[in-house]
Amino acid sequence: METLVLAESDILIDDWKSGRGEYDGLIYLMYTISNHDDVIPLYIGKAESIGKNGGNLSANIANLHRDKSKFARWGDGYAYHIGDLSAVAVLDHPREKVTSKYTNWASRLFEEFPRQYPKLKIPVHFWAKAWRSSEVGIWNNFGPTRLTFLEYLMIGVASSAYPESLLNREGQNRS
Rank of each mutant, 00 (worst) to 15 (best):
G19Y: 07
R66P: 00
D10Y: 02
G21T: 12
D15P: 15
I40W: 06
I50T: 13
S49Y: 02
L29G: 04
G51T: 02
S9Q: 03
L57S: 10
E48M: 12
H36D: 11
L57E: 11
I40C: 00
I40F: 02
A59S: 14
I61N: 12
I50G: 01
S9E: 00
D15W: 08
Y31D: 04
I50R: 06
E22D: 15
D67H: 11
Y31F: 09
I50Y: 07
K68G: 06
L64V: 08
Y23H: 12
L42D: 02
N56C: 14
S18R: 13
G19D: 06
S9N: 10
L42N: 08
I11P: 01
L57K: 07
A62N: 08
E8W: 02
N56Y: 11
G55E: 15
H36Y: 05
K46E: 10
I27A: 03
A62R: 09
V39I: 15
R20D: 09
N56H: 08
L12I: 05
N35A: 15
Y43C: 02
K70G: 01
Y31T: 01
S18E: 14
D37M: 11
A47F: 00
I13W: 01
L42E: 06
D15Q: 08
F71M: 11
R66C: 05
K68S: 10
T32Q: 11
M30S: 09
Y28P: 03
S34L: 01
W16Q: 14
D10F: 03
I40N: 04
D15V: 00
Y31H: 11
K17I: 03
N60R: 14
I61M: 03
I13H: 01
K46Y: 00
I40L: 12
F71H: 04
R66H: 15
I44P: 02
I61Q: 04
L26R: 10
D14R: 15
I27P: 03
I50Q: 11
G21M: 05
I13R: 13
I50E: 14
T32P: 00
G51W: 09
N53W: 12
K46T: 12
D37A: 03
E48D: 10
F71C: 05
L64Q: 14
L64W: 05
D24T: 04
V39Y: 01
S69F: 03
I33N: 01
L64Y: 13
K70L: 05
A7W: 00
K46P: 00
I44L: 07
L12T: 00
N35V: 08
K46S: 06
P41E: 01
G19E: 01
P41H: 07
E8L: 05
D14Y: 07
S49M: 12
S49L: 10
S18T: 15
S58Q: 07
D24K: 09
K70C: 03
W16M: 03
T32S: 08
G25F: 13
R66W: 11
I44N: 01
I40V: 06
N53E: 05
A47P: 08
N60A: 13
N60D: 12
N56E: 13
E8K: 11
I33S: 07
S34G: 08
S58R: 05
I61D: 07
I33T: 02
N35Q: 10
A59Q: 14
I33P: 06
K46Q: 09
S34Q: 01
W16A: 09
G21C: 10
S9F: 00
I11E: 01
D10L: 05
S34W: 04
D10G: 04
G25Y: 09
L29C: 12
